[in-house]
Nucleic acid binder design. Sequence first.
DNA 1: GAGCTGACGAACA
DNA 2: CTGTTCGCCAGCT
Length: 112
Amino acid sequence: MNYDKPNYFDLVYQVVREIPKGRVTSYGAIAHYLGLKSGARMVGYAMSASHGLPDVPAQRVVNRQGLLTGRHHFSTPTLMQELLESDGVKVENDQVVDFEKVFWDPEKELGI
DNA sequence: GAGCTGACGAACA
DNA sequence: CTGTTCGCCAGCT
């Protein structure tokens, strides 16, 4: 019958696309928003597969510690920080400054 | 066609 | 307190 295959990667892309400028979120936050409690990995893997998607600001997605863990996946290891600073997000030592202040929670902003 | 790898996070010992 | 283990799925070789 209608075997809906939950395209987790695609779901992640849609949430990431909704991240407003000057804000960042975490893999776990997106995963939890999608109902994937332990699916933080899925979000990270999805970003890896999002290479080539212009509407997926992967630089706005960081790990729970606010660290730019995925910076090495960009064209240049500093591009991620450049993009974040361009959005008004301060980055220092590969970590987002005032991470909790610029943190964007999809459950709170978009609503569950 | 099958196996390995990979941008995390939380729970447990 | 720290270290380790489990869970989850798709893409690539």
